[in-house]
């Protein structure tokens, strides 16, 4: 089995991660996806006295994919999850070590 990469997307709450998972399964035959909710704490205003940290709801979405296809899945994800906008979240990719994907690859 080839090297596996983990793509993590930290997304605003209006992106439907279940929808993303369904399309990945249908178009890419990838079922190794999972998600959880989170809160994003960021510098939202530029008050000098103290950076105000305002929590907002986030969804964290993960995809495990072989290294060769990571590029295309990442590109697709950036488009599908509308990362290309203000407050659109971010996507990052990591290499995985030993990976077991029984029935998922």
């Amino acid at each position: 089995m080839s090297d596996q990469h983990l793509i993590t997307a930290i997304l605003p709450e209006d992106v439907d991660t279940l929808d993303l998972a369904a399309v990945l399964e249908r178009d890419f035959a990838i079922s190794a996806t999972f998600r959880h909710s989170a809160r994003g704490v960021g510098r939202t205003t530029r008050r000098r006295r103290r950076a105000t940290l305002i929590p907002e709801r986030r969804n964290v979405f993960y995809v495990i994919v072989e290294a060769e296809r990571a590029e295309s899945v990442l590109t697709w994800l950036l488009e599908a999850a509308r990362v290309d906008r203000y407050g659109g979240g971010l996507v990052f990719e990591r290499r995985l070590g030993q990976t077991l994907l029984a029935g998922a690859d």
Binding site: A38, R39, G40, P55, E56, R57, R58
Partner: peptide, 8 residues
């Protein structure tokens, strides 16, 4: 708990 602290 359900909003991971976004709604305190």
């Amino acid at each position: 708990e359900l909003t991971d602290g976004a709604f305190r």
